[in-house]
Design a protein around this nucleic acid. Sequence first.
DNA 1: TCAATTACCGATCTATATCC
DNA 2: GGATATAGATCGGTAATTGA
Length: 215
Amino acid sequence: MVDAGETVTLRLARALARDGYSVDTCRSGPTLAGQLGAGTYEIIVVGAGTADGAGLCANLRTAGVLAPILVVGRGASPRESATALDAGADLLMVAPVDVDELLARVRALLRRAHGHAVVRCGPVVVDRVGRRALVDGQPLVLTGREYTLLAHFASRPGEIVSRADIMARAWNTRLAASSNLAEVHVARLREKLRSHAWMIETVYGAGYRMRASRK
DNA sequence: TCAATTACCGATCTATATCC
DNA sequence: GGATATAGATCGGTAATTGA
C-alpha cells in the first residue's frame, strides 16, 4: 500500500490486516520500488495521498509489475480517471473510501487476477481469494495470522519452511529474529487442526514442513 | 540447544447500555 | 433515533518454563 497520507493508510492497512492480508506500507513510489525488489505482492493499493498515482502506475507497469493496482483518488474527474486507468491502474475508487467496499474490491481484483485460486494439501483446502480454510470439508475458524501461516504452508507441501521465511511472510521481518512468535502461532494452528496437527511437521534445526499424508 | 507449551498483558474490536 | 460510553471478548505479542 502506497500513500503519503499516513492516517488514511494506517486505517485501511489495519482493515486489510484484520481481514487476514499481509500488508506492507510505504510513503512514496521510489520507496515501493525498493520494496518490490525484496518480494512479490498480490495486489498494490495506491492511496489518495500519493502525489502522482497515474505516474506511479505507469512506472510500475514499465518495471514489469503484473499485480493488480487499485488507485484511490481524491474525487478524480473522468479525464483523471482515464489517465490513471490508461497508465496501468486496474480499478479507481474515490476517497473517502468505505473500508468494507475496499476489501470487496481487493477480493474482486484478486479473483480476476487468479481465478478462484484454491490450494489443496491433503485434507486441508485453502481458498486464497475467499480467505477460508477447510479440513475434511469442515471450515476452520482462523485468525488472520493463522490463516496466513496455513496458506503459506499449504502452498509449499513437502517443502521445508524456515522460521525466517515464516517471519518474513507473516510479519514482514519487522520483529526480532529472537522472537518465538512463529513457534507460538504454529502451536495455535496445530491446536485448531486438532487431529490433523501431524500435517505440520517440525524439521529440527530447519523449520517446519507441511505433509499431505501420514508416512 | 532447540522446540513446544503456557500464562499473562496490552491493544483493538464489538455488543450493549445510557444519555441527549 | 442517533451518538457516546462502557464492559467483555478476541487477537497478537512477550516471557518463562518444560521437555526432547
